[in-house]
């Protein structure tokens, strides 16, 4: 049998300590992604360190008026939490657009950040994949790449990050609280995931043994005009072809604050702050939204079966913003 050891961590320190003495280990939380990958032999850890008993399940106010989401709170408990629903409805909507109720009951907020790409080739050991086996090649670039990235790609990998939740977290300027061997650190969500470059095997900037303890959502005025538009190949239970997390703060029809993050198009949630800032003080019109869409997709590049995403993403952005601007 593919043998591995299993340890239950009592608290974060215990988890970090355990991680510091093991090689080829994986943390496990809800297990909804990791176990699948283990069954497919994509991940073959020698040790599992179970985080699920750690009491990082709370969702509580922060001193500066924001909200802290425990890394081990489930996606379901987060989406249906009253404070999240009232103050960060964008996050609720994004979470509920993903997976299925059963999965969301198991999946944790921490685990969601680490879920791996759904690239067909990444899952199929019969085909080369740089992310799974660095240096073996990328089968998707010249293969079937309907679900692949159009932004921030490299010649080594064109995979997307499949999360819905993370797209909202990116739009909301979340911060990721991490504890590792060298102590605690806070990472801006925009910097958490990385682009594939020549090391597509790394999805994010964490060091081995780093534990995500919580996510902080800063205070904002973005609870009124929000939407999460997810375009996919069936109405439910499918990953995004393109998704848009959109939020507006309006003064009349003048934009005071605007956030647009895209999912399904890159190795990380895609946001260009300068393109958003350019719209502040301007009117919430379709024309202005189109300008933003063009800017967000300016560097987009298709690979054949996913080229349609470039135009589709632009349309989705305009639709999402038009809808939130209307909903007063």
């Amino acid at each position: 049998m593919n043998t591995f050891s299993y340890t239950r961590a009592n608290d974060v320190a215990d988890a970090v300590q355990n991680g510091s003495v093991k090689t080829n280990f994986k943390f496990i939380a809800g297990g909804t992604n990791l176990l699948d990958l283990m069954k497919e032999n994509v991940e073959r850890p020698d040790h599992l360190i179970d985080l699920s008993r750690i009491t990082l399940k709370e969702i509580e106010d922060t001193a500066d008026g924001g909200l802290r989401l425990g890394a081990l709170a489930t996606n379901a408990n987060t989406a249906y939490n009253q404070k999240v629903e009232e103050r960060y409805p964008l996050l609720s909507k994004a979470i509920l657009a993903g997976a299925s109720p059963q999965l969301r009951n198991m999946a944790t907020n921490g685990g969601n950040l680490f879920q791996r790409t759904r690239c067909y080739y990444f899952y199929d050991l019969a085909t080369p994949c740089n992310k799974r086996e660095p240096g073996s090649g990328c089968s998707a670039i010249n293969g079937y790449n309907r679900i692949h990235a159009i932004l921030g790609t490299s010649e080594h990998c064109i995979a997307t990050h499949p999360s819905d939740m993370c797209v909202a977290l990116a739009a909301l300027d979340a911060k990721v609280n991490v504890t590792g061997i060298h102590g605690e650190k806070v990472i801006d969500f925009a910097d958490f995931h990385r682009l594939p470059g020549d090391q597509p095997q790394f999805d994010n900037i964490l060091e081995p043994g780093d534990v995500v303890t919580s996510l902080d959502l800063p205070k904002n005025n973005l609870s009124k005009h929000v939407t999460y538009l997810k375009l996919r190949d069936r109405q439910s239970y499918a990953f995004a072809i393109v998704s848009v997390a959109a939020a507006l703060e309006l003064d009349g029809d003048v934009i005071k604050d605007i956030r647009v993050a895209l999912g399904g198009v890159a190795h990380k949630p895609w946001r260009i702050k300068s393109a958003e800032i350019a719209l502040i003080g301007k009117a919430a019109t379709v024309e202005n939204f189109k300008v933003l869409a063009e800017n967000l997709l300016a560097d987009a590049k298709g690979f054949g079966s996913n080229t349609f995403k470039i135009e589709l993403a632009k349309r989705a952005i305009v639709r999402a913003l038009t809808e939130v601007a209307k909903a007063i």
Binding site: Y120, A126, S139, R234, Q235, A238
Partner: peptide, 23 residues
């Protein structure tokens, strides 16, 4: 079929879509 490999490439129920209730 990925013609580079001559292989069905979306060979799982996550990527081979069949209708779900919501459809």
């Amino acid at each position: 079929v990925d013609n580079n490999f001559g292989r069905f490439i979306n060979h799982n129920l996550s990527e081979y879509h069949v209708a779900v209730n919501k459809d």
